[in-house]
Every structure is written in C-alpha cells, then in structure tokens.
Design a protein around this nucleic acid. Sequence first.
DNA 1: ACGATTATGAGAGGAACG
DNA 2: CGTTCCTCTCATAATCGT
Length: 569
Amino acid sequence: MSSSNEEEIEWTDDDEEDNIGLDSDVARLRNEESMAAGPSRPPLVSHFIGMGFPEDMITHAIEEHGEGNTESILDTLLTYTAIEKSPSSQMEVSPQSEGEIPLTDEEFSDIDVTGEEERVADLSEKDKRLLQLVEMEFPAEDALSAIDRCGPNASFLELVDSILAAQMAKDSDDFSDLWEDFPLSEDEEEETNVREDKRRQFLNRNQYGSGPSTGLHTSPSNLPYPMVGFGLPSDPQRITHRELPKSAYGPPYFYFENVALAPKGVWEEMSKHLYHVEPEFVDSRYFCSTARKRGYIHNLPIDKRIQLLPPPPLTIQEALPSAREWWPSWDNRTKLNCILTSKVSARHTKKIIEAIAITSGESPSPLVQEFVLKECRRWNLIWVGLHKVAPLEPGDMEVLLGFPRNHTSGLGFSERYKCLGNSFQIDTVAYHLSVLKELFPHGLRVLSLFSGIGGAEVALHRLGIPLNLVVSVEKSESSRMIFKAWWGQTKQRGTLISMDDVKQLNEEKLKELIRLYGGFDLIIGGSPCNNLTGSNRVSRTGLEGEHSSLFYDYSRIVHFVRSFIRGRM
DNA sequence: ACGATTATGAGAGGAACG
DNA sequence: CGTTCCTCTCATAATCGT
C-alpha cells in the first residue's frame, strides 16, 4: 500500500521565481568577431605587462580579440595564466617536446594488467615488481623468492599467486579476517566462514582497511589497482574460484552495481546488507575505450566467464576513427574518462578551441598543449576537426557503452546524456553475466530493478540468453519508453512487466509474481548513485540520501525473493 | 511549461617530494 | 612520516529560449 510514489519534486514549494529579470542587460561580450587586428600598441601591451602577463601572450590575445575588447583580452589572459600556476608545467612539457616518446600502435592496443603508467623503465623490472609487492604488504622475502621462482618476466598476478600459494602451504590464516570484523546482519546468522580466497584478498588489497568500529589508521586505499575484479578475459591467471558466505550461495542470483568511488563506509554498508559478499571492483577501461569505475556485489559463479564478441576497441582512436583522423600527436590519451550525465558548455568549448587557435603554426605551444589537454580530460573531449575538440555525441556514447547506436534516439539531447551516463557498460557487465548462459540454456526470468534503458537486458540479449520474463522497475518514463522500444525491436518473445516504483514490490506483489511465473533466476540492479558519486556537488549525502537509499529496497527484495523461493524448494 | 544551456567544487586517493 | 600537488567523478539547480 505504500503507493506514495512522489518523492521527486519536493522542492517545488519555493518556486515563485517569477523574476522576469530580463532587465539586466547581460548582452555583454556576445560575439567578439571584431577581428580588426590592429597594430599592437605599446600602451595596451604595457598595460597588461604591468599586470604580469607575458608579452607574447598579450600579443596573441590582442590579435585574437582586437585591441578594443580589453575585457575579452583579459579573460583570455586569465585563462592562459591559469596554466602557469602549475609549477611542473615547464618540467613536464619540455622533455616531451624534445624527447618525444611517440605513441606506437602497440601502446594503443596492448593492455597490460600491471598498468601502462609504468612504461618508464628506470628501475629494473625486478625492482619494480618487488616494490609493488612490498607495497601490497607482502613480506619482502616472500616477494623475492616468488620473483625468483616465477622468472624475470612473470606477470603481476602470477607473482601474487605464487606468493599466496607459498603462504597457504605453510598454513597462514593470520590475515584472513579483514572481512570478519563487520557486525553481522541481524537477519542472517551465517557463520563467518568468510574464508575468502586469499588471492582476492590481496588483489583487493586493503579493501576494507579500516573497520567501521575503529578509527582510521593506516593508508585506507579502498580500491584495488589495477581495478580488474577477478581478472580480465585475456588473463590466464585470472581468479576462477571464490568462496561465498553460505547464505549467499546459489540461485536466484543477484547482481548489484554502483559507483566504486562512493563515500567512505558505503561499500561496507552495502555489502553488509547483501550477505557480506565482497564487492568486485572493475574499471571498464579494461573492457573498452572508456573508463567506468564500478563495484559489483553478486553471487554469480566466476569460473566460466566469457567475454562478449566481438570485443570492442580498447582505444579511443580505434573506437572513433573519425576522431583519430584529427588526433594530434601531443594528445597522448588512449582512453576516455567516465561518461557522465552532463556535458561541457558550448561557451567553454569555444574558449578551449580559441586557446588552440591562438598559436599559429603546426602545433600549439607547450603551455597551450597542457591547458587543452587538461580541459579535454576534464570534459572528456575528442577531436572532431583540425585544432577542434567537441564533447561526445549521444550516438558515440551508446557505442562506447556497448549499446546499439541510436538506442536512445527519440529522446532529447539532455535526456540522452542523462540516461546514458547512468547506464551500464555492456561488455563489462556481460562478462560477469556470461556464466548464466550455461546455467540457464532455456532462458532467464529476470527481476530488474532500476532498469534504466535496459543495460542488463541488452547485455543478456547480446550474450544470446533468452529473456523469458523481465519484471522491470524504472522511475523515468522516458527510460521505460526506450527499454520498451528495444524490447519490441529485438522481437523479444518473453513477457515484459514494467512498473515505475520499487515500493510497489512489496511482499504481496512479489509473492504474486513468483506464484505466476514460478520464480526468478536473476535479481539485477544498479541502485541510484546520485548521493554517492563525486560528480554530485550539491547533495552527496551518502547511502542514506534521498535517492541512493533506494539501495535498501534492492536488498530488501533480494532477501525476500531468495528466502521465499528457496523456502519453497 | 518544458527542454536546452550553463555555472557550480568537494572529496578521496595516488604520486612525488622532503 | 607529513606535505603538496595532481587527477578523476552514473550531478544539481538556476537560467535561458522557445
């Protein structure tokens, strides 16, 4: 009966904003195409020199805006001098311009688990490995002997495996309780047989370094590096076995997703409410050409994962050939940052492009390069023309995330950015869900919460898993519309039940659905991250926030459905 | 009224350095 | 060890423009 599904617009009580404030003439600096490049006058130049700007920069700015527009000139100068506040600019840029480490194609395509930031080979390979292992709090002697055992060019995971194998051989259960100092949830009395696979413990090193009870102490590096979860498809040494808490084992399976960089304590709290299953943190940068750091709490088997075929391009330049055409050599990015829900303003983009254009010649000056590169990283810009950058278009976002192009067409631009920024990366999720294909050869009954534009269903469909039943909960009407359109376009034969409020799924409704369809095989959902993500500058209030607290509905439904179904079996 | 546009940093972790 | 700098992040709300 909790049909009070209106918590969306509570702040409409103070909307008497009838300020038709068009009175203020804000029509200043509309368009300054006064390209009358007059002679640079010493008075104006010296005026800015007196303010501390370099002379050549002033000259360029005056040529750009015309000598009359002092306001725009000052604006430009202030923008450029923001670069100089970084004292490392001179040191970092100059060796690059002369030393010139060119980007080879192998660097574009090769994905190394140990991270590509380590290509500087000052230390010997052995020393670097040793340093890494010691930083992960392995005893130095154990690390050394492992390096000796595995040879000079062993992968990082091989070394970890070797060390842990040796440690387990000599019976060490002294570091197995990172996970056990959590208070048990009141509903489950699972014995704390959280004998986690030790390889995973060390992969996700320090994952829960500071327990919730004690104050913080040592380095709370909460997230693993590299953020590859149980391992990549290409890694033969990837982890293929883990031990789940007993209460979490078996179907119906659950698969939960949220942002990896949540406020402190949030992942511990979410794990506590999902059978104490340890999250798997994965950055989609290892599966495609755009980053997406996410945590996944699930009870799926992990031993027979297969990646989606064909695998997507791993670099921007491969994924967006039109961008590669214009990509300058001094932009060394091969991966895009996370696709967010909003994009850069056209005004700011114009300012960046003007900064590039201010240098005549082949390539901009090192200072401008650094400025542009920084802005490109911040706003996830790509090259769309000679000396011209632009934000991603919705169609490119769809492809990068693994959706069919034009998956969200029919919506306005703002809505497309929003729902795409909120969605899964299909290849990453499909890799995890792929184990279901063998387990359910005749198809799945899916309970899909916070479905959005149907990322989970698209992943399952691309895996070739029939969707016999999908009960989908999604608040946004436009997202529901997109999902239903996809459902029809792909000629799904199963049953689709769509609703808008997760509160409607009370025990009675769930019992009815289970009675009708026999049960569910998978309960999947990424609960709202609004109050968790660092992108939120206004209301990053944590798991108890207005939207993100809907996580508790996910865990409530998972617990009820699992206990109810398993009670009938 | 409604979609499009725009301005708005904190926070956490890692790297470099002494 | 601490300090400093650097990097990145499934967004919100006021405003604009039809």
